[in-house]
Every structure is written in C-alpha cells, then in structure tokens.
Design a protein around this nucleic acid. Sequence first.
RNA 1: CGGGAGGUGGCGUAGUCUGGUUUAACGCGCAUGGUUUGGGACCAUGAGAGCGGGGGUUCAAAUCCCCCCCUCCCGACCA
Length: 411
Amino acid sequence: MERFSQSFIFTTKEVPKSAEAQSHILALRAGLLFMVSAGIYSYLPLGYKALRKVEAIIRKGMDRYGAQELFMSALQPIEMWTKTGRDKDLEEVMIRFKDRKQRQLCLGPTHEELITEIVKRYISSYKQLPLILYQIQSKFRDEPRPRYGLIRSCEFIMKDAYSFDADQEGLRQSYEKMHSAYQDIFKECGLKFIMAEADPGAMGGSLSHEFMVPARIGEDILFACPSCGKYFKKEGACPRCKKALREEKMIEVGHIFQLGTKYSIAQEAFFLNQRGKRLPFIMGCYGIGVSRVIAAIIETNCDEKGISWPKEVAPYDAILLVLEDKLTSEALSVATNLEKNQGLAILVDDRGVSAGVKFNDALLLGIPYILAMGKNYMSSKKIDVERRKTREKLTCTPQELVRFFQDEYSR
RNA sequence: CGGGAGGUGGCGUAGUCUGGUUUAACGCGCAUGGUUUGGGACCAUGAGAGCGGGGGUUCAAAUCCCCCCCUCCCGACCA
C-alpha cells in the first residue's frame, strides 16, 4: 500500500509539446517517463513499476522454456567486433569512444559477439548442449532519428536471448521454444500481435520471424487480406483469396533469428561432437524490445481520458480515492487488508485535492480498478468500484470487495 | 542526412510579420489566507522568466541580420 501524497507521482493536465504519439503523450502526462534528450528517457517510479511487471512476465516466459538469465556488460572493447566485421557493419549505429588509455570502446548495440566469447570459453562438448542464455539490459544505438518516445530511442531496454546447438535440428527446436515463449509473453502482456516471416538483414542467418503489434504509429508495414485476415510482408493480391491487400502499420516488439554459424565460425567458437570432431555452434538469437513493449501496450490500451493498463502489467492493481478527509485512516486499513489478504498493490489517493482531480488522475494513470470512499461510505459503508477499461461502476462493502477481487482475478 | 515546423517563468501558450505603449502578458502548477468538497472548485495575496546560445544592426531588439545549438513531424536509415 502506498500513499499518493507521499509518492513520486506527478501528472499533468496539459499535453507536452515534445510529443505526438499517444503512448508518448500519456507516458509523459502520467509521469511514467522523464525525457532527458531526444531519444533518451529516464523511468520514474510509476513507469519503472510497469517496466518491472513486463520484465517479470518475460523472465517467467523465458525460464519456462529452459533459458538461463545472465547479465553482460554494456561496455565492450571494439576488438570484440572485428572478427565478425560488425565494427564496420554497425559503424553508424554504434556509440563508440576512447577511454583515457586511448582504448576504443563501444556501448553494446547488441550482444552476439560477447555471448559467443562467453560460451566459447566454457562449452567444449556436445554434452553441454543445447543452451539458451538471455539477459534484460540497456542497449545503445546512435539512431539517425529517434521517434515516438519509447518506440525508437537511443538507449532502450532489450531482452536478448542466444541459443547454442550442436546441429540444425537442435536449432530448429530452440527456435521453436523461443517462438512459443514469445507467444506466451506477448499474450500475457495484453498485446494483440501478428507473426510474420522477416528478412534477417544485418544479423545474418537464414530464417527469422517478427512479432508485430498493429498500431497507428507503427514504423513497419504489413499487408493484410481483408477476407481471410492473413498478413503478408509484400504487397500483391492474397494468394488464397485473390483479394487486394490493405496496408497496416505495425510496431515490431520482437524478432527471432536462426543465425547458424556466422558468429561461431568468425569467432572460432567450436565444440566436440560424439566422434571428437570440432564443429561450430549453431546459433539463434531472440530479441524483445522491452521498453517498446511498454509503448505498444499504452498505444493499444488507452482512450481520451488516459491509459488503461492490462491487469498483468499495471503499476498498481487498484487505486483507492479518499474523498473525505475523515476517511483516510479507514481507507488505509481497507487497502492494507486487500494487500494482506489478496496480495493486491493499492495506491491510496489521500492528497488534499478535489474529487474531480482524483477521478481524472485515476483515469489518466490507468490503474485497472478505481475505488472511491466518500459520501456513500459515510452513509452506508459502500465503496464505489469502477473498472477502468469498460468504465462499468458498482458499489460494495469492504467485505464484498474481497469477493469481488477474488472473482476478478480468478477469471 | 534532405524537407517542414518550432524554442518566451516548472508546464502550455500570446507577443515576432509591422522594433518603442513590455519595469515581457495569459492559463495551469506552486506558496499563503479564506470559502468550497463525488467526475480537472472559487476569491484574495504572492514567488517565479528578460525571451535557446553567441555575434551584429539601431537612440532602442523577444521582435531585424549572421553563425551555432536544441526539440518535434515527414522522408532516407533501422539489429
């Protein structure tokens, strides 16, 4: 239970000038983010809570499929990149500089090279495979044009996973696992997504799939068949329905790649098979733009009043508005009970502002349940409950509230 | 990196074209006092900027000229 009056949560009525995308405007208005510079953001307590919720969902999804978490350095010597030649390929996006010893360093835009060095050092037998490692970490890219807040920024949070297998069939299985994990993860985050076969581009490799969320401000485009609903990467009539396709904008939230041996061969990362033969690891890599997921969730879960977080990622489960000063201590104990008995995280709005401000801030913050204690509580011990998403309202006593939440969360 | 729009108290803006009536205005927010109190209340008082930075023109510059920086949008780019 936290008290709004003592929390570092600040909302604004006015729309910040430096934002155009809904998700960006709302993230700033609801006090989730602080803009440091173009494409650089700091997470404020409320935004960080939502971020940690998303990270927890990702960890659960990855762990379920046997991936192990580690944490690599963002700082990398440039020599790490010369064997694969990507110091040249990624020259433009890499943020690089010299330290006091004139050593060339970069802030990792991605981590294939480093993970390959790590695995190469410890894995030398087929018996230690397959292996999937992942991390959730900040990535740095010198974007030519940062855009739409968290959608495209120069420093952003990514979940990157890497698989190591002894053969092509192993890679296929690892890829399949990550494919399933991603579906679980995006579903739990409350995102409606589409999977599309993609071009591996500078990552290299043979096969890749993108996870896309349809949104007005998407930077990618897929072509949808209006009759069967299938999506295609290229324009042209639907092969099955022969209908003309229509363009839809998409936010790319995840991308998985079958890399093959591009990195293992270049970096001489080998293991011994059953017959003692030296073979390069067969690799895959799997990314989720964590901060971008936050933006995609807000973008697709909002209305004219503000954000409407899906329950699973909401920074708090409910907000309790105290509309009569006298009720403050009673409200705190109601909140404490809900927290103790049902593990709910409650924000108690005990600020000395008008009811209108509290209701509107509650809608802006997008916490799934808005509870109000005021007149109705004074007269008949009734708490007013509103579902943020549907705006449905009902009333119940504190005792009934316990059952209400049991029902809501067992659905 | 090309094209467009901007930079004025903490936030959002007006003023810039046509220099002077500006000791820079308004709304929000903030502080103090009072009245309010269920869907962004009201009154009073008050604090807070010298107009993105630097040069220049002029008796006089937020306003005109030059250079630079920053932000947003469109495009190019995008693991």
